[in-house]
Amino acid sequence: MQIDINQASSYYRQMLLIRRFEEKCMELYSHELIRGFLHLYIGEEAIAVGVMDAAGAEDAVIATYREHGHALARGIPAKAVMAELLGKAEGCSRGRGGSMHIFDAKRRFYGGLAIVAGGLPLAVGMALADRMMKRDRVTICFFGEGAVAEGEFHESLNLAALWRLPILFVCENNGYAMGTALERSESEQNIAKKASAYNISASQVDGMDVFAVAASAKEAIAQIKENSAPVFIECLTYRFRAHSMFDAELYRDKAEVEKWKQKDPLTLLKNQLETAASGSQLDEDALEKEVASVIGEAVAFAKNGTLEEVADLEKFVYSEEVQQ
């Protein structure tokens, strides 16, 4: 396997940023600076980083409530995300969204949506609009394997295939819908196979391997454009932390968690570099320092941020402020 050191270094830096960002979130949560629900992406970083590498600036991204990683990989500044988590006016959603509702119009990042499978119908409509307006764009829609049990998943896959829409469906299969294991919720556990039933080109990929994810996403996007039809990627992954900060993890074995940690996407990337024997190595210390500085600035920015005026509580309910 040929590995470009610059590419590897860039992936590693992005995944490390997400990892350290999430760890910082956990710390700030315990200090009660972040409240509400907090869903960490630790363990799953390779998916967002790999897919975003394949995404063009004009493409649209729709993610879930576990989306800090996607936001950072899409290029939303860490300080804007952190300020949002601290509920500040400088946050990317002006403090109205929080952890589960990160948005950025400039980067075509449409959430941060917290109803499981709720983003899939949106992707259908976004892609429909692109096709109607003859725009050469793809809509990338992330969701967890838990979404597969929802009706909206099936309605959306059917519509996307029926209308041949330019959508990249990315299923992040981390094995658990909150505390319910896939085998306890689905009669057919191969999700790619389910997607195939809708006549969608679908495959499984190692979601811990950033190179594999990126390659798969690049190929998928080329295929979507060539065939004017959706493509489905199921990324097999695992979350190393609890579902949210309220989760005591009674539903899974510590041994299972430890087993998956052996496949840590950051470690895997380092191992891939070593076996590639290209002679080049990551400068881990430098990357750690760089990431620490970005996060340090983000936290300072968020802490120093201002609180939205309570007088503006009703702002943004409607485009013109309508008297009720």
């Binding site: 449409y110 709720g118 899939l120 119908p121 992707a123 909206e152 309605e155 059917n158 519509l159």
Partner: peptide
């Protein structure tokens, strides 16, 4: 749910 959501998506994307 699918086509109403698709309406929202299309509206978000300029239609």
């Amino acid at each position: 749910s699918g086509f109403t959501g698709a309406g929202i998506g299309a509206a978000l994307n300029g239609m």
